[in-house]
């Protein structure tokens, strides 16, 4: 930082002065000017690359089916826990641009209880490294435990939300989601 600030003030010197000052042509000054120029251009290109992401208007789609409730029980400490099997299919190809390093995608169960105004529990997540892998279909049980804070899951209605975080090669990260409402847990433990 120090080096950068210093050298930029030297670059802005009027050229006429150069002739009177042999120091301007020394190796140190040349290296300094070159480095400053290179860093400035690099920073500028990073900024442009990040800005160019704003022109992408993606149209992703997703579908989730809950195939089976594997088990549904109350833990000894009083919290409800459920295990389920799901089919997740999504097409996230339009999220990828030339500045996209990866897309982190996860499916979260979101619901409200009398105790908590919002509960978000990630059930499955994955990293999509490239556009070729962005249209996928997966059959899975929940990767992280679906545990409530309390015993409120019987008959509970919940949303399944597919969130994604677009990680750029450089610059700003983008976030969005698709909310899929209308899922409901059964009334009894099993």
């Amino acid at each position: 930082m120090v080096y950068f600030l210093r050298s930029s003030s030297q670059l802005s010197r009027p050229e006429a002065e150069e002739k009177n000052n042999p120091k301007m042509h020394s190796f140190g000054y040349r290296a300094n000017a070159l480095l400053t120029f290179a860093i400035t251009i690099l920073a500028f290109m990073c900024g442009i690359a990040s800005l160019s992401d704003n022109f992408n208007s993606p149209s992703p789609s997703a579908q989730v089916q809950v195939l089976n409730i594997n088990w549904f029980q109350k833990q000894p400490n009083g919290n409800d826990e459920v295990s389920m099997t799901m089919n997740i299919s999504a097409d996230l190809q339009s999220l990828f641009t030339w500045n996209t390093k990866q897309v982190f995608v996860f499916l979260a169960a979101e619901y409200e209880t009398s105790k908590n105004s919002l509960n978000q529990i990630s059930l499955w997540d994955g990293i999509i490294p490239s556009k070729e892998h962005a249209k996928f279909w997966i059959h899975t049980s929940n990767k992280y435990r679906f545990i409530d804070q309390g015993s409120n899951l019987r008959g509970r209605e919940f949303n399944l939300t597919l969130h994604w975080h677009v990680m750029p090669k450089t610059g700003k990260m983008f976030v969005d989601k698709i909310v899929m409402p209308g899922y409901r847990l059964q009334d009894d433990y099993r």
Partner: peptide, 25 residues
Amino acid sequence: AGEIVVFNVDGREIPIVHRVIKVHE
């Protein structure tokens, strides 16, 4: 959920950068 947060844990000097997977508000 999903956000990448930097957090301090009591008794640890160096903060950690990880992703949020569960939220109860």
